[in-house]
Design a protein around this nucleic acid. Structure first.
Lengths: 224, 224
DNA sequence: CACCATAGCGGACCCTAGTCCGGTTGCAAT
DNA sequence: ATTGCAACCGGACTAGGGTCCGCTATGGTG
């Protein structure tokens, strides 16, 4: 289920190895006991979350099932959100890979508008599959600003800039990520919105924003 | 600073009196001691929040400053978010009043698009003034679904339906409220976005969504 | 192989949100 | 005024997230 990530490892075990990594720091090799414990923790957490649902698992539970002290847990993962994000790391990488090097329209090659559609759909699927974990991380304030989140944000900024060079792409990305927020997704599903309806909403949002940007932005941007 | 609300009182002291109120329940008059304590609590909370900032005030602090047990606090306000919302109650009513009966373009009389612009600006101003309280309430999960929030949501649904009868107004309202979320506002301000920039973003979002809805919706709606 | 510096460990501890329940107080009807 | 009852009060208690710091195991070094 979980494999030790092969490359360089940062605090939370996220990303890193995909970058050139020419850092000056002398490759902080992970000690053997640390690695063992990390695996045990991830395993324990995955089991417990699967058994009782994310809501009903405390950090103490995870620590004791992993046979590890609480301090260890927090040393390796920072906080509960960090643990959740670490559990999603693999899946996150898959999505990132598809975005960056995968096939069009999610990957490069398609026009920006198509890639935006595809990104939203892929992300909403991702949220649909991992809603519990993601919305817990978001609730705890650990999602926004996390490395994967920053990558998604950058991706959106790039696509929006391509599609509408004169628009405020950063703000567009912010708004779009608000709308894709896992908590909001879960809330809406509970409220009776269908996944498809949310996807349609996303496409319409993208369409609207892009058209408004293409039409209105040149004038607005020149005045700012 | 705080006045006792004159009319009927619901659990959190929110809204109510603006409705016709033909309820069958025999007007649950508030007991004198209860009213006294409620005022003392609100006063104490307002003082403490002003002194140290919302983040650094615990419910125990509020209770002890108010000279009241913790149980009383929770009985009257439900939870910390409820307390925050109660503190904003007056301000909330003002905004609601302006939306419903105030001058155009925020109030009735202006075309829906203008009212949407105005609503966003008014709400963002509101958030700018009460960001701490609001984002705490939002963090705690007590904002979405609260009576004021529902009213704002309904307002948006109505305006969106008027402006684009065939579009998915409910979803639009959901998305728009995500974007106006106080936590997001505060985060962006901290990140260097100016208030004006956010307002411009809002207008562009509204423009885009409405145009996309007017253009694309009739076809899309007939197929759904 | 013996030693040492240090990353890593673990569980006692703190803080705060939220619950519970026995005692108290206000209100209305007699 | 008295009494019954319900709402109300308050503070002890629980639970869970997160911190701290003395101890230990690890892996490099002489």
């Amino acid at each position: 289920m979980f494999r030790a990530s092969g490359g360089a490892i940062d605090q939370n075990g996220v990303i890193m190895e995909s970058l050139p990594l020419v850092t000056a720091s002398p490759a902080p090799v992970e000690r053997a006991d640390a690695a063992r414990n990390r695996l045990r923790i991830l395993q324990a957490a995955a089991e417990l979350f699967a058994e009782r649902g994310v809501e009903h698992v405390s950090m103490d539970d995870v620590a004791s099932r992993a046979g590890v002290g609480k301090g260890t847990l927090y040393r390796r993962f920072g906080d509960k959100a960090g643990l959740a994000l670490a559990l999603l790391d693999e899946q996150d990488r898959v999505l990132q890979e598809q975005m960056i090097r995968g096939d069009a329209p999610l990957g490069p090659g398609a026009p920006p508008r198509e890639r935006l559609y595809a990104f939203g759909e892929a992300y909403l699927d991702f949220v649909a599959r991992h809603g519990q974990l993601l919305s817990m991380a978001a609730d705890l304030g650990g999602l926004n600003g996390s490395p994967p989140w920053q990558l998604y944000r950058t991706h959106l900024v790039v696509l929006l800039s391509e599609a509408a060079p004169d628009a405020d792409a950063e703000m567009g990305a912010e708004f779009f990520l608000d709308v894709l927020n896992p908590c909001a997704y879960v809330r809406r599903i509970d409220q009776g919105f269908s996944h498809d309806r949310l996807v349609r909403g996303w496409r319409q949002l993208v369409d609207g924003w892009l058209d408004a940007a293409l039409r209105g932005a040149p004038a607005a941007a020149s005045t700012s």
